[in-house]
Computed example of a mutant assay.
Amino acid sequence: MKRILFAALIASVLFTSCNSEDKFAITATQVGPLTKDTQVNELKTLFENDSVVDQNSGLSEELNVNAIEIYEKGGTQLLSLMPVKEGNPKTIKTVQIFDARYTTEEGINLNSTYKDLTDAYEISRIETLISSIVIFVDDINAYFTIDRDELPGELRFNMDTKVTKAEIPNDAKIKYFMIGW
């Protein structure tokens, strides 16, 4: 009887640890338990141990202007989700990562640098914005924002200059990490 209980305990621990890892896994088709087919009405079940804050009500629901935010019990924000504007049932269009535990198979998370990103993935394109640059990685349907303050002098202040892959410092930190389906 003790052996059966011990085996059940070990199986339970292994199952829980596997689930824990999957909870923060990012691939081209998932962010933790979310996929592009996840319906908004499933979020409270998927994040049953967390807080789901859906500010989409009234006029904002019709326009889908407000994100759905996921907070860990205790207040730490995990994710911000933007639902698709049209279609029924509503699914998730973009996911903004707020917690560094969410990590890609190649080890990229919010604590990664530009060098980490280029070592792990092929950069698809770079868009230069007024206060930041956006780096697209099509392999995982992701885009990463780096603040212009991370760039060398003239690139930091010249808003008309298009930034290339080679001009971004290796130690530039990722400011935002988003998945878009």
Rank of each mutant, 00 (worst) to 15 (best):
T16C: 04
K115I: 01
A172F: 02
N88A: 03
K165R: 07
K115F: 07
F6S: 05
G74C: 10
L63H: 00
G32D: 04
A25D: 08
S124Q: 15
V13C: 07
K165M: 08
V13Y: 05
G58T: 00
K115P: 02
L110D: 04
D139S: 15
A67I: 03
K93P: 00
A25M: 12
T38Q: 01
Q96D: 04
N141Q: 12
I146D: 00
T164M: 10
I130G: 00
I4R: 05
I123V: 15
R148P: 05
T76M: 14
M159L: 09
T16I: 12
L129C: 05
L9H: 06
F136V: 14
Q77Y: 09
I133M: 06
T118L: 07
M1C: 02
A120F: 14
I97Y: 07
D22H: 11
Q96M: 12
E127K: 10
N158A: 05
I179Y: 12
S80H: 04
D99I: 12
E48I: 12
P33Y: 01
P152N: 02
T45M: 14
T91W: 11
T103S: 10
K90P: 04
T118F: 10
E105V: 10
L14N: 02
I168N: 04
I140F: 13
A25R: 14
L59F: 03
E105L: 10
D171Q: 14
K115E: 13
K162V: 11
A8P: 00
F15L: 14
D119R: 05
T104H: 06
Q55V: 00
E62D: 03
D171A: 13
I4P: 03
L129K: 12
I126P: 08
F177E: 02
K175N: 02
Q30L: 08
